[in-house]
Amino acid sequence: MAQLPSIQRVFLESIVSSSDPEGRFIEVNGIQTFYKLAIPQIHQQLLQNQRLIPNEPNKPVILLLHHILGNQYTWRYHLQPLADATGCHVIAYDRPTFGFTERPTEWENGKNPYTQEASVEFALQLVFNLGYTEKKIAFVGVSSGAAISSFVAIKYPHLVHSLCLLGASLTPEDQGPPPVGRHILGSAPGRLFLKAALYRYLPLTSLYHDTNSIPDWETVVKPNYRVPLTFPNFYESLSWLMKYFVPLEVLPNKEYLARVPILYITGDDDRYLHVDRHKEIFDDIASVAPQNAILEYKVLNNCGHLPQDEKPQEVLDSIVNFLFRVGI
């Protein structure tokens, strides 16, 4: 007898079908995962005319990874424009715990989906499950998404085309709360605190230079960050994410990271990680880079920790120009 889908899955599918018809689901490591796929307009036209899409073996697939407490909505200005500008297929997805992706309440021994190591493997498996097993991946990651992207490049360099790191959180102290904070947030009282604080304060205005510069902040942006907080098992899964959070060792492996083309973008008013610290981290990576390495560093004016939200056009232009320079 076939197993019935969980109530959580049915609920998420019903919400998406009525509110976001462009979104899709795919199962990754047993988790129903919400994602969006953008293909170049020219390819869409060929499909509509029932013609074959040209084979472009040298083009990577672009994967966008959001930050903690974010979701794929943060790439709203980049998904289709990146596909059209580069000719690549572009994927954005909700990482486990966030957005419309399922939040497991139990798992097999050794297969905890809420660890950072699991996040690395999950990103790759998503790409493979979507059929891009023969493609290299151009990663675009913001904050903790940049740490996951970087660790893929360290662990699986043969799979990585390039890295675009936005407001990157690459040191242990910057990837998440300190161990004591994670212990508290991973406890029952910590879960109550999260419930009391997040819906009121998310999205965190301290991560931005000026929220007034973001169109539809009150009417559209806030709801798209807050609504997923009301979905089943959100606070439980966030508590587990904090409980099992062990920062990825990115900078101790910087000599491997520096072999991959890197575009490092930060805002001049990043209050989560000061711009001077970003420069130190970039210089640290560059110090061990091979002579022919392609490493670029860019500071955006009047911008905070989430450049893709606050300076979407500048980020888009920078990524497209960089990808063409590294041979997309």
Results as ranks from 00 to 15, higher is better:
Phe122Gly: 01
Pro232Met: 01
Ser149Pro: 06
Val315Asp: 08
Lys36Asn: 11
Val160Cys: 03
Cys303Gln: 02
Ser18Asn: 15
Thr171Met: 12
Gln80Pro: 07
Leu241Ser: 09
Asn55Ser: 13
Leu263Ala: 02
Asn109Ala: 15
Ser239His: 04
Ile294Cys: 13
Leu273Gln: 07
Leu64Ile: 10
Ile68Thr: 14
Ile91Ser: 05
Glu108Ala: 11
Val246Asp: 13
Ile42Glu: 13
Ala293Leu: 09
Leu300Glu: 00
Tyr256Ala: 11
Val180Phe: 13
Ala2Glu: 14
Leu12Ile: 09
Asn49Gln: 15
Leu316Ser: 12
Asp283Phe: 03
Phe25Tyr: 15
Lys155Met: 02
Arg271Asn: 08
Gln125Ala: 12
Gln313Pro: 00
Ala85His: 11
Pro312His: 10
Lys36Gln: 15
Ser287Lys: 06
Ala123Lys: 07
Ser19Ile: 14
Gln50Val: 11
Ser162Asn: 09
Ile68Trp: 14
Ile53Pro: 01
Asp210Glu: 00
Tyr73Gln: 08
Ser237Thr: 12
Ile154Leu: 12
Leu124Phe: 06
Phe100Asn: 10
Val246Thr: 15
Ile26Leu: 14
Thr33Lys: 10
Gly141Glu: 06
Val61Gly: 02
Ser6Thr: 07
Leu207Gly: 05
Gly181His: 03
Ala146Asn: 09
Val152Glu: 02
Asp276Lys: 03
Thr211Met: 00
Ala258Gly: 03
Ile53Cys: 01
Gly87Asn: 00
Ile285Val: 15
Ser213Val: 14
Pro228Cys: 12
Cys303Gly: 00
Pro189Arg: 07
Tyr201His: 15
Asp174Asn: 15
Gly87Cys: 05
Ile294Trp: 02
Pro104Ile: 03
Glu27Ala: 14
Met242Phe: 13
Val180Pro: 03
His43Glu: 12
Arg200Asp: 13
Ile281Gly: 05
Ser187Ile: 06
Ile91Phe: 08
Met242Trp: 03
His78Asn: 14
Arg24Ala: 15
Ala38Pro: 06
Ala83Thr: 08
Ser18His: 11
Leu37Val: 10
His67Val: 10
Phe245Val: 00
His89Ser: 12
Arg103Gly: 05
Ile214Ala: 08
